[in-house]
Nucleic acid binder design. Structure first.
Lengths: 210, 210, 210, 210
DNA sequence: TATGAATGAGACTTCATTCAT
DNA sequence: TATGAATGAAGTCTCATTCAT
């Protein structure tokens, strides 16, 4: 009983730390994030972070592992084997958009990891990402075999999709800060990621369909 | 004469500082970059940086203004008004790839700026970027008017293109660090940005053509 | 009965804490020792230490009191009044060596206390040490009175003896770490404290005998 | 000219840091010493220590290297080859006492190094110490060959000498703090290291002479 | 008694920036 | 202009101690 309560307390504190850390790493990056700030916003003592999780590096590792591991899992779950390649591709894009929408931190972290060449990326997480790339490769190959997709470089298709979605997600803040970036196109109100994802679906299907 | 020499030396020193700074900001981001390291690698005294350019923020501003301003200029130059929308779109992608290829630092910096919501992005640079977005909007609109492109959200198309190219560029290092990321696709040797850009051209044209 | 068991358990826990603390204070000194480490190695919860013994200072006091108090007692016991001064002196050295050999921690702690000028030395322990010094003073005085020893400064003799024995004990580890320290003399295998003590006996007797 | 002044300033600051550090390491040991305190007492900014010397470990290494290296040099200088073994032995003890007297920090640091098994002792310093041990070994061997010394374990003789001198030096503070330690012997006023060294000379010569 | 969690104070170290020459 | 030195602010991490159960 008291064990239970204690466990709940332990995980609750750790969870609060991890969530706050995800936010702050996402806002400021690994180097820009301040452990003090994480503790302050999480409402815990700074030493608690070291007690429960470990140093800044370990904290970062936990955060991105949780984020990306979860994402990979969702992706696998959502794409049932029985679907047609076309439907799978749509689901893939939809799911990706959903993940990014529900975990707003994932977009920024992914971009920064790409920018730094994965300097802080633990092996485990690299595998999660590789899994996601593997899925789309499979879908495209399948489509080619069924004669409904043209032959493409799957990695490039993957980058187009993920690039469009992640950058769209991120651009909302930059666009609101620098209206000049939206003025040129006439879709200011279109900050809805769902709609952008639908557009990506349409464009990508056009691109790969025979 | 000595004035001239002094001027040349002055600009030469400044140039060396700026080039080194571009490298290091690109490798490590604004927060991760160390003024000491920039001075060391540029072979100048640390105080020289403050004398010639200013503080870290000013240095960063100069670097990205040089990088992006130049890019916008190249883009305008390369897309002559007389071309067909299809040809313009191809040129646009080709030019973008060329810029990224010739200025390897631009990719990482752009990603990090996106990630941080343009926290360190000066107005001037935002305008440069807006210019680039404006160009593709124009191309797509023109194609729609001529009846050869379907109606699309230009901003999404832009993100697909730039995302694919920039991420492809960056992914080379991350892929070589984590081979697992390449294993799934069979295009390891394909690390050539030119080829990826050609693929992007083909896919995007498929996507927008009527 | 349960009271008894509880008492036994209580003292057993305290004993385990004290033994471990002695080890760790000996290895690392007061400042270098970590309460966490003591708890870990003793297999008890950190708070237990505070409950059973007290804070770090109190723990240290207990440890050295146990160590030195015991030593003083042994010394008194071993030197029966009926012996000749020569025999007493031999016994004194022999006993000292025995104490140091059986309580390996005592050597390091004594050196560090000397080094710090007894900063952490409780009065009680100082008296224990004074007792030991008193004993050899008595022996030497007695020998002088009996006309078999020359007149000496007893404190210096004491320092020679204790210095040789304690430093010999400690030097084993430093010599094995830095073989260069043993190379110069040809007695590498001679790391036996007993043999060194015999040599000290011989030398000291030579030194003080008429 | 300005170079000279700058050099002087540089070495002067470094010297001040090093001297203060020697004091504080001697008072408190490596773990007990506080970098803040060193900076404060040296009258320099804390960051200056890192600029001029390096981190705490490096600072400690420099301090003991200066101390022990200097000591080894003095010892070699003072013992001219032409002297008799007896005279050399006296000089050896005298010089040791002189070194300890002039560098009060050396005694405490040496004791603590012995206590910790040379945990923080750089190789270079170990060699300095080995050199000192080598000298007395040589002296005793020479005396044996000339038939004026008995055969002894040189390392033990060395420990007796250095133990007596170093402990005597250190004991002054502990004795003044705990008068009980002096009461038993009647030589309170004898805190003069010179006199103690003379006594050591006499005793050691008695001990080793045939 | 025993223990996991919490915490404030403080330790070491780094860094951008400025100073003095 | 150029540079070695200096510095204050801040950042990461540790540790003895206490709390709450």
């Amino acid at each position: 009983m008291s064990q239970q309560k204690s466990n709940r307390k332990r995980t609750e504190t750790a969870r609060r730390i991890l969530n706050t850390a995800a936010e702050i790493f996402s806002e400021s990056g690994f180097e820009g994030a301040r452990v003090d700030e994480i503790a302050r916003r999480a409402g815990v003592n700074k030493a608690s972070i070291y007690y429960h999780i470990g140093d800044k590096q370990a904290l970062y590792a936990r955060v991105i592992h949780d984020l990306f591991g979860n994402a990979a899992g969702q992706m696998v779950e959502n794409i049932s084997a029985s679907l047609s390649p076309t439907e799978k591709l749509k689901r893939y894009i939809h799911t990706l958009a959903g993940i990014v929408d529900q975990n707003p931190q994932i977009a920024a972290i992914m971009l920064r990891e790409q920018a730094s060449g994965g300097k802080n990326l633990p092996e485990l997480v690299a595998q999660d990402i590789a899994g996601i790339v593997g899925i789309i490769s499979g879908i495209l190959d399948e489509g080619v075999k069924e004669g409904i997709f043209i032959k493409t470089k799957p990695f490039v298709v993957h980058l187009m999709i993920i690039g469009a979605i992640v950058l769209y997600k991120m651009s909302s803040s930059i666009r609101s800060k620098y209206p000049v970036l939206s003025e040129t196109s006439n879709e200011q109100k279109d900050q809805n990621l769902k709609q952008a994802a639908a557009e990506v679906q349409r464009l990508v299907l056009n691109a790969v369909k025979k």
